[in-house]
């Protein structure tokens, strides 16, 4: 077993503002521990990539950030996670509000079996973000434009979201997440079910989105992590092994394990 040093948070050193800060996060599924003492800062208006072999706890960590783990029976989270300095796990916090501030895009595109329009409009509707139909239309249009899907679907807003292609569906899901104006968007392997062209589309999109949102993305694709992210965190067996500037992690990793992983020697 390799000795693992706990890394020092890097983004602050790089001059960014910390949006989400995790300190000493342990996650248990029943008796099984999935994350061990994770300290990680996610910088505002930057893309942070989470990499690591399957089962190392990337998704688990991501789901802690919007309390999606709450719905899993037997899942327990300890430690502290703050959003703009506010403890996400405080007793007084409203989980539903957390999720409207921290949106999520899943591995498999999962549009609602409703029209394209209703998919995007659903979030704003339940949160009362639009006062009338015109405002809602505007939100839908803006969100679809931000997700660079507008030109492809503007004539078929009434068609079911499930009738779009895989890549379009995933961008629809991104638009749906954007529509509630979250501050942070979590993406769990958003391209793993897509073809290379759709993947390129989404990667481009992620780069544009960071001006308005803070993004954390899980990916198994090292090139993708290198292309889209400013910071990279490498997880292994539930521990955060290395975290830092993406360029530094990929060109000059501190840990040999990181080196081995990104060069494809294991994982």
């Amino acid at each position: 077993m390799v000795a693992i040093t706990v890394p020092v948070a890097a983004p602050t050193a790089a001059g960014g503002v910390v949006k989400v800060a995790a300190r000493g996060v342990d996650v248990f599924y029943g008796a099984k521990q999935a994350l061990v003492a994770v300290d990680l800062d996610i910088a505002e208006h930057q893309v942070t990539a989470l990499i690591g072999p399957s089962g190392c706890g990337k998704s688990t960590f991501l789901r802690c950030l919007n309390r999606m783990n709450d719905t899993i029976e037997g899942c327990r989270v300890t430690g502290s996670i703050t959003l703009d300095g506010q403890d996400l796990y405080a007793r007084t916090i409203d989980v539903v509000q957390v999720r409207s501030r921290v949106g999520m895009v899943f591995q498999k595109p999962n549009p609602f079996p409703k029209s394209v329009y209703d998919n995007v409009a659903y979030g704003p509707r339940i949160h009362g973000l639009a006062r009338d139909r015109a405002e809602l239309d505007a939100i839908v249009e803006t969100s679809l434009k931000l997700a660079s899907l507008w030109s492809e679907v503007k004539d078929r807003l009434g068609e079911p979201g499930t009738s779009l292609s895989g890549g379009q569906q995933q961008r629809l899901c991104i638009a749906r997440a954007i529509a509630v104006s979250p501050e942070v968007i979590l993406m769990d392997e958003p391209c793993s079910a897509l073809d290379p062209i759709a993947t390129a589309h989404i990667e481009e999109l992620i780069d544009e989105l960071k001006t308005n949102f803070t993004i954390a993305i899980v990916t198994h694709n090292m090139q993708q992590a290198a292309r889209v992210s400013q910071y990279t965190a490498f997880f292994h067996l539930g521990r955060l092994v290395e975290f830092g500037d993406t360029a530094a992690v990929f060109t000059n990793p501190r840990e040999t394990m990181t080196q081995d992983y990104i060069t494809g020697r294991f994982g």
Binding site: N66, M68, V96, R99, F106, F112, I126, H127, V180
Partner: peptide, 19 residues
């Protein structure tokens, strides 16, 4: 995945079920 999608945009448990 439908439940997750709804929760992900901040639907309450009741909204997830009802909608």
């Amino acid at each position: 995945s439908i439940r997750e999608a709804a929760r992900g945009v901040g639907a309450s448990p009741l909204q997830v079920v009802a909608h």
